[in-house]
Simulated assay, not measured.
Amino acid sequence: MSPDEQRAALVAALAETGALNADWAPSFTAVPRHAFLPDTFWADESGGDTECSRSSEPERWMGLAYCDVPIVTQWDDGGGGPRIFPTSSASMPTLVAEMLSDLDARPGQRVLEIGTGTGYNAALLAHRLGNDMVSTIEVDPQVTAQARSALLGAGYTPEVVCGDGSLGWKAQAPYDRVISTVSLRLIPPTWVEQTRPGGVIVSPVSPLFGSGAVVRLTVNDDGTSASGRFTRSSAFMLLRGQRYRGEPVEKYLPGEWPGDSAQSWTKIDPEASIGDDWLAQFACALALPDVYCRRAEFGEGWTWWFFDTAVTSWATVDSVPGKSRFDVRQSGPRRLWDEVEAAYDQWVAAGRPGYERYGLTVTPTGQTAWLDEPDNPVSR
């Protein structure tokens, strides 16, 4: 098939699943995704990122450009050496379409996009709303230049800015809509300030503990806060300024494990109950925004480590296949596993709610996650 035919097939598939609505279908039909992809990229095939070069595999390259898969376009912030962390990408078309549907941007509305990436999403916005109504900001100078070139080559000229997306872009504020294509732990109050009352902010949120989901916030009438529900699961790269690198274990545990920890037992296997369930992770993450975890191999299973960001407390749980109870060690003023277990039990008792029952309220002083209604916070 020709690229046009492949693009038409992708659009038809997205429409059939309900991901792509009628408002956005013309833009997906008109904007060539392949025009925003580099000659070499890494596509998510069979659970792994496989390299593909247009010069050596042109048919496969074009086919992947119009598959419903995410494509990595940069590793390790563009540094050389072995590829470790993906740091820029073309998002999965299904998620692109769903997030634009969440955004509900309409002609006549001004939009700010955080995280230009390849420029493809900005082109979709520019096609529907007009070039003059779209600003997009990208922190990486090289990625910015490539996106600007790709946009121009495809015939689109939205405002492309190289800068820190967490600050928004005051020059064109206020916006009717703000959309982020990078994930955050904390939604910046600046985005709320730069959005009109009644305006909408759509962003992936990736809590420190794990998992992630897209939130759709509406700015209140006086423009000081925004609140709304999560709409769907997501997995995006974090905004660079909100990446978190935990302290080494030695900062928490001087000397040999188990140190001064207290021993107890739990019937909850963190590997099976939390590690294998994104919703459970998400519920625990919202309840414990200052707790993060790591896993380390332990015999036939795993040891789960839990830490607080204040570097005061830690806990471990040994997940061993076939066991009915699991060894717990906890140290510090907080009993972190007890807190995780309580958050998990709270989620189970609520009927294992999905993403759509959770919401977020953002104010000038921070953010609060809630279940069902804003007056029912889940933070512990």
Score class of each variant (00 low, 15 high):
Ser56Ile: 04
Ala171Glu: 11
Asp277Ser: 11
Leu186Tyr: 05
Ala350Ser: 13
Trp169Tyr: 13
Trp337Lys: 11
Val178Lys: 01
Ala25Cys: 10
Asp372Cys: 09
Val31Ala: 11
Ala350His: 05
Thr312Cys: 07
Leu37His: 08
Glu373Thr: 14
Leu167Glu: 09
Leu279Glu: 09
Gly246Trp: 10
Thr316Arg: 12
Ala19Leu: 02
Leu371His: 12
Ser56His: 08
Arg110Asp: 01
Ser55Tyr: 07
Ser180Tyr: 11
Leu20Asp: 04
Thr195Lys: 06
Gly199Val: 12
Arg128Ser: 09
Arg54Gly: 13
Ala213Lys: 00
Val214His: 02
Glu16Leu: 10
Met1Ile: 04
Ser89Ala: 11
Asp308Gly: 08
Glu59Val: 15
Pro158Asn: 00
Thr73Ile: 14
Gln330Thr: 05
Gly18Gln: 09
Gly165Lys: 04
Ser89Pro: 15
Thr190Ala: 15
Ala280Phe: 13
Ala126Glu: 03
Leu10Tyr: 02
Gly359Lys: 02
Ala25Gly: 07
Asp345Thr: 15
Thr316Met: 01
Val328His: 05
Trp169His: 10
Val139Met: 10
Ser264Gly: 08
Glu159Cys: 08
Ala105Gly: 00
Ala280Ile: 09
Ala123Tyr: 10
Ala123Val: 07
Val291Gly: 00
Trp347His: 06
Glu51Val: 11
Glu45Asn: 08
Trp265Ile: 10
Gly301Tyr: 14
Val72Leu: 10
Ala315Pro: 13
Lys323Val: 00
Glu98Pro: 07
Ala213Leu: 05
Trp278Cys: 00
Val178His: 08
Ser261Asn: 04
Arg357Phe: 02
Ala145His: 12
Gly163His: 05
Ile268Leu: 15
Glu51Gly: 12
Leu14Arg: 04
Asp164Cys: 11
Pro353Asn: 05
Lys251Trp: 08
Phe36Tyr: 12
Thr231Ala: 06
Pro374Ile: 06
Ile187Lys: 04
Pro107Arg: 10
Val72Tyr: 07
Arg229Tyr: 12
Ala369Arg: 03
Arg177Pro: 00
Ser166Pro: 01
Gln74Asp: 01
Ile114His: 02
Arg232Tyr: 00
Arg295Ile: 13
Leu184Asp: 00
Ala213His: 03
Gln109Trp: 02
Phe85Cys: 02
Arg380Gly: 12
Gly130Val: 15
Ala262Gln: 13
Ile187Leu: 14
Thr266His: 02
Arg329Leu: 03
Phe298His: 15
Asp102Gly: 04
Pro93Asp: 00
Arg294Ile: 08
Ser89Trp: 13
Asp104Leu: 03
Thr94Gly: 05
Ala126Met: 02
Pro86Asp: 09
Pro248Phe: 10
Trp337Leu: 13
